[in-house]
Computed example of a mutant assay.
Amino acid sequence: MTANRFDTSVYAHRLRAAAEAASAAGLAGLIITPGYDLRYLVGSRAQTFERLTALVVPVGREPTLVIPRLELASLKESAVHELGLAVKDWVDGQDPYDMVVDALGGDPVATAVTDSMPALHLLPLTERLDDLPVLATEVLRTLRMIKDPAEIEALRKAGAAIDRVHARVPHFLVPGRTEAEVAADIEKAIVAEGHSEAAFIIVGSGPHGADPHHEHSDRELRAGDVVVVDIGGPYEPGYNSDSTRTYSLGEPSAEVAEQYSVLQTAQRVAVEAVRPGVTAEQVDAAARDVLVEAGLGEYFVHRTGHGIGLSVHEEPYIVAGNDLPLRPGMAFSVEPGIYFPGKWGARIEDIVVVTEDGAEALNQRPHELIVVPV
């Protein structure tokens, strides 16, 4: 594996699996424009512009990459050349959409396109396809949900790196500092601990902690605050961390300590429920039932988790109504929370990977309410 991508054999396997999945779905092929699907299949970080770049994965034929000649340099860090893929470059004045149809074999029926394809390219393609394309999401979802060993190792490294950042967070939580100042320190720590960047930083102090998607503000931290810190980012080759811990500036009240203890139990019970064959909604229910029994159910206002990988949020979603059975290799967050509007909030989040007989937690920082002396 290079710093920016996996070994070429990983991508060769994924391309074969994608073509097999397309065939099983009765499709003639896949058309993948820049985005997470393209990065997953060939390690390319090409961007979408007004000129079309598209990986064509036909059933029964070799894949072809259609790309503007002036974008060829974007392939250097990908596995395209080592995979031996055909590259059809084009210049202004040529029709790249016809080139895509030719790469499909000239029989453009039952085609799937990536869900990130912009209308700028989708509409011209539909004019040349015999049938309206479907989304490739259903074809690729299982492949991307089931992480291979290289992906799991990448997620482990990302999880360990964000743990190191959380270990530094108490030093940043000083009364009188603003949430934004704390977030700036955390951003530097995220990069210092090996991430390529910070994808998101939530510092929710006091009443702001009751907003699950609060980011940070100019509110000054105060003694007695409960502070939710939810942070993460991509770690090369681009797999994300995501972990939440909750801190108390000084000893918490008895009520806060008691309610947080229930949340801690809910998170632990949900992680313990993870194993092959259990459904996503059953993991959600495991956390929710603990909170409901303690009279806190109404304060848990979001799903229990989301899948993670190249994207911070991807399938599987750990939510009521999702009867998807868990399978080894699936990676997702387990993050119940409780939120009391105008007062305070708390959340505990680990990334877990489904194993053959349970779950491996990729975050190891303490789950207790972390008391910061003031």
Rank of each mutant, 00 (worst) to 15 (best):
D163E: 03
L173Q: 05
A183W: 08
I146K: 10
V191A: 07
I146T: 11
I201D: 02
I152M: 02
A189V: 01
I152N: 00
A180N: 13
H166K: 08
K188I: 03
I201P: 03
A192T: 03
L155V: 03
G204A: 13
A199Y: 15
D163T: 10
P207K: 08
E187A: 15
A192Q: 10
P149V: 05
R168Y: 03
R177P: 08
R144M: 15
A158H: 00
A198C: 06
A160V: 06
E197I: 01
L143E: 08
M145R: 11
E179F: 09
H171D: 15
A184M: 14
P207E: 11
K188L: 14
G176P: 06
E151V: 04
L173W: 08
H208F: 06
P175I: 04
V165R: 00
A210D: 10
G209D: 05
H166C: 12
A161V: 02
E153Q: 13
G209E: 00
F200S: 12
A154M: 03
E181H: 10
A158E: 05
E197P: 02
H208S: 13
M145F: 02
G159A: 09
L140A: 04
V191Q: 02
R164Q: 11
R141N: 04
G159I: 00
E138I: 06
H166I: 09
V203Q: 10
